[in-house]
Nucleic acid binder design. Structure first.
Lengths: 206, 206
DNA sequence: GTCTATAAGGGGATAGAC
DNA sequence: GTCTATCCCCTTATAGAC
């Protein structure tokens, strides 16, 4: 067991220090470019301790990945499943929840999507995503309002509008299309804009 | 120099064989996870030849990256710059061009965006993206039609709708939301849908 | 639990024969 | 131009002292 659990500003257990460092380094550099030495240094501990607590780089990585996938899913699933909000309200909440989470961690989506792509195994497990989405309140409401719109197209458009700017951030900022310093306010503007536009789409005749 | 340039089905020069193999392996696995041995094997040549032609893994990678960034830019810039098409036509062309290019190479956007993210240097060079976009015919037409819409928001929404499904493909197919075999027809549906929806947005009062 | 030291292997690059 | 053999650093993981 670790020495401490709580207490002061420097109160993380060694295990948690390593995991926090792993989150930071893996998310920034991806699995392959990350060296266990980087993580150890970031955590302020010795390299051997990493293996003592987590057995291997791979195991530690898998813990971080599972956690991050969970974060991405939990940002949207409870919103889609809430039967007491309107479809329009759900759209607003999906957008604002994601923008809030991703402003605090810009790299999250590209990290997860890129690592999933390289590995097509073992990560999509716990949550039966397809089932959850298709049986959601969101789905029912959308079908009720517009049975001629493929809900997957609608959902992916909503997510694309919201998440894509984070994925494309490197090219946006490096090209000067969006100033790095203004990125946050740029996304705050989108937070108002996207629900208006997605609602407009909802009313558009096909 | 290489032995051959053209001739038969097996007619690529050694240099081209290596580059073709590098494109394939780098795009699939990214820079760090790629071993030069993988590329050599894929090319059907010896490892030493890779260094003979390209000096280092890094140099070879940079050639591939530049080429791929160029592909992504050339898919959109001529469309935006064409003064003889309407704004609506430009939207259609951006969507159909990207879907055509990316259906042939699903990994392209996530590869480029992820590598750019890890490296914020040396790749955004040749094309002055910001200048080109802001001075484009697309920009002029959009401002004319809707001077209350931030054109960057509009453009990113268009690209998000179009490109994001490719970036999110791992999670879409692994979760079962979109069947791998139907992905192409799914994107073909979007090719019709996105212009309709983006045009609707263009007419939506803010 | 935490450290130092080191084993074991992987991977980029090159020397030198042909 | 192309190959085989090899160098050598870097990285993960572990042994063993404290």
């Amino acid at each position: 067991m670790a020495k401490r659990k709580k207490g002061g500003p420097d109160s993380l257990s060694t295990e948690e220090k390593i995991k926090a460092a792993a989150r930071k380094v893996f998310l920034r550099k991806g699995f392959s470019a990350t060296r266990t030495r980087d993580i150890a240094e970031e955590a302020g501990i010795n390299l051997a301790l990493l293996n003592y607590y987590f057995r291997s780089k791979q195991k530690l990585f898998e813990e971080v990945m599972k956690e991050k996938i969970q974060t991405l899913l939990q940002t949207i699933i409870p919103v889609l499943n809430n039967p007491s909000t309107s479809l329009e309200k759900k759209i607003e909440q999906v957008v604002s929840n994601y923008i809030e989470v991703l402003l605090a961690n810009n790299d999250l989506p590209i990290f997860v999507l890129n690592e999933l792509r390289k590995d097509n195994t073992k990560f999509i497990t716990n949550v039966p995503i397809q089932k959850v989405i298709f049986q959601s309140s969101f789905m029912t409401q959308l079908k009720e309002q517009r049975d001629d719109i493929n809900p997957i197209h609608f959902l992916i458009s909503l997510l694309g509008m919201t998440i894509f700017p984070f994925v494309a951030k490197p090219i946006l900022t490096q090209s000067g299309l969006v100033n790095e310093k203004n990125f946050q306010s740029f996304m705050k503007e989108r937070e108002s804009l996207i629900p208006i536009w997605m609602t407009a789409i909802l009313k558009t005749k096909l």
